[in-house]
Amino acid sequence: MSDEKVTKVIDARGSYCPGPLMKLIENVRLAKVGDVLDLLSSDSGTKKDAPNWIKKTGQELIGIYDEEGYTRIRIKKIK
């Protein structure tokens, strides 16, 4: 796992896709350039949707980490 300092953890566990993605979009708009966000999702669809959205919007995907019962997706706002 990367050792960048996480600015905010978005806990969307228990929410169906695209609930986690919606929370990510909302928080990326609110975040400052340089902020690092961790999205926690228990929905398997997020593993595909979130990286696609990050790529489409030109943000940086730092990593996707499988945790117990959920996935942690780390993103950096770069624009």
């Binding site: 169906y16 695209p18 993605l21 919606m22 979009i25 949707d49 696609n52 959205w53």
Partner: peptide
């Protein structure tokens, strides 16, 4: 629409 489909509930 901001996500990768036209509605939130897949």
């Amino acid at each position: 629409y901001p996500i990768n489909s036209i509605f939130t509930i897949q």
